[in-house]
Design a protein around this nucleic acid. Structure first.
Lengths: 216, 216
DNA sequence: TCAAAAGTGTTCTTGATACACCCATGC
DNA sequence: GCATGGGTGTATCAAGAACACTTTTGA
């Protein structure tokens, strides 16, 4: 099992990598991963690995694809079920960054060369993320609990690698009625403070059962 | 590996099932499947199984999901990579139906009880099919090479389980410029003969590379 | 001449896009 | 008072949805 862990911080999409201590690919960066035990499900294995590497519980986790090329591991035949995870990195930055000494967050735009077929796994995870973020609420899994509409816009711009119109995006996301304005504002820098919102997950689930279809 | 094989015939979406000859679930119907060999990829295993059961080459095949519940096979721990396939059933009806004595096509609306967790695998395959058919050209994989617009409409109606407006659907699919009208017409029953079309796969690939986005 | 499916246009409504200025704050 | 990002509305255009009658054939 391998796990593509995405975070969003400082306006950039980031990826968690582990520096390999053993051959093959010793010293190269790789996706966190490990072997599935006989008495645990695939999901449980992915979540166990995730907790081990990041210390984070309650993160979004979804199966991505299963990679079964015969020569993908030079040692022996290994089939790998890949997952991808979305973590609220800016809420847990300090913790997540330091838990594993050999783990590090890289901007997706500036990655080192990866071990095994992990570049291909990442490519697929990015494609999935870009596809799903437009019609599911998974974007909010990457934002802190309380966020501003500018943060939301920057997230979409980073993931989709495009520029978006501020007014049109705000109009659309607010029209869903899923963002709850909070009492607080966020004050950073010498300019007007920004309204904070939270995403109403419960209401989203209700609407989705009634056939509601979210789209950015 | 398990394989969800869909066909479309007589206006209905159909599923290929195998009657199990051995325990567990002896006598119950199951998805075609088998074990992946050490020196073949997952895709190769799925295609090998598909050729064995249907005798069909060149069918659409895509990985669906990997099922890893601990108790999904009562004998021992088995992880299964599920695929789904789309076959042009009406082109090959006679051949496909008789190749394997214990194989049979069932309307998706009238299925027997399935072995193992195959009902869940099917549920997921149906969801995938319903999702993808709207924005990819996979629908044509279920139609014969030459088809009428009514057949196309009935296919979408069967897969999506809705009714569609004849005029709006024709307007939209023809607007893509991907359906080539043929010289021939199809004459069935005592009414006006229907224009036959073929899907221009090459042109579709070209457009897709340029960012073209198909949607029903 | 009748039954049965094939084929064809227009109107209305909705949502997408494009676009420019004022506001609140810290320095 | 000025630099910085936060916040807001309207006009235009394109696509989706709703809708009914004529055409061609075989029996």
């Amino acid at each position: 099992m391998d796990c593509v862990v995405f975070g969003f911080d400082e306006g950039e999409l980031k990826l968690l990598l582990i520096e390999r201590g053993l051959e093959p690919f010793k010293g190269r960066w790789a996706l966190p991963g490990g072997f599935v035990r006989v008495n645990e499900t695939l999901d449980e294995a992915a979540r166990r690995e995730l907790v081990g590497e990041t210390g984070l519980k309650n993160v979004f986790l979804e199966q991505l694809y299963t990679f079964g090329e015969v020569e993908r591991d030079p040692r022996e035949r290994v089939v790998s079920v890949a997952y991808y995870a979305l973590v609220k990195l800016s809420d847990h930055r300090a913790k997540a960054a330091t838990d594993a000494a050999n783990a590090q967050w890289f901007p997706v735009s500036k990655l080192p060369k990866l071990a095994f077929d992990h570049a291909e796994i990442l490519r697929m995870a990015l494609a999935r993320l870009q596809g799903k973020v437009r019609y599911q609420s998974i974007g909010f899994e990457l934002l802190p609990e309380k966020f501003t509409l500018s943060q939301l816009q920057h997230l979409y711009e980073a993931v989709l690698e495009t520029e978006l119109d501020k007014r049109n995006l705000r109009k659309k996301v607010l029209s869903f009625g899923l963002l709850v304005p909070l009492e607080e504002t966020q004050m950073v820098g010498r300019h007007r403070p920004a309204q904070l919102f939270r995403f109403d997950q419960k209401r989203y689930e209700q609407l989705r059962k009634k056939g509601f279809h979210f789209e950015i």
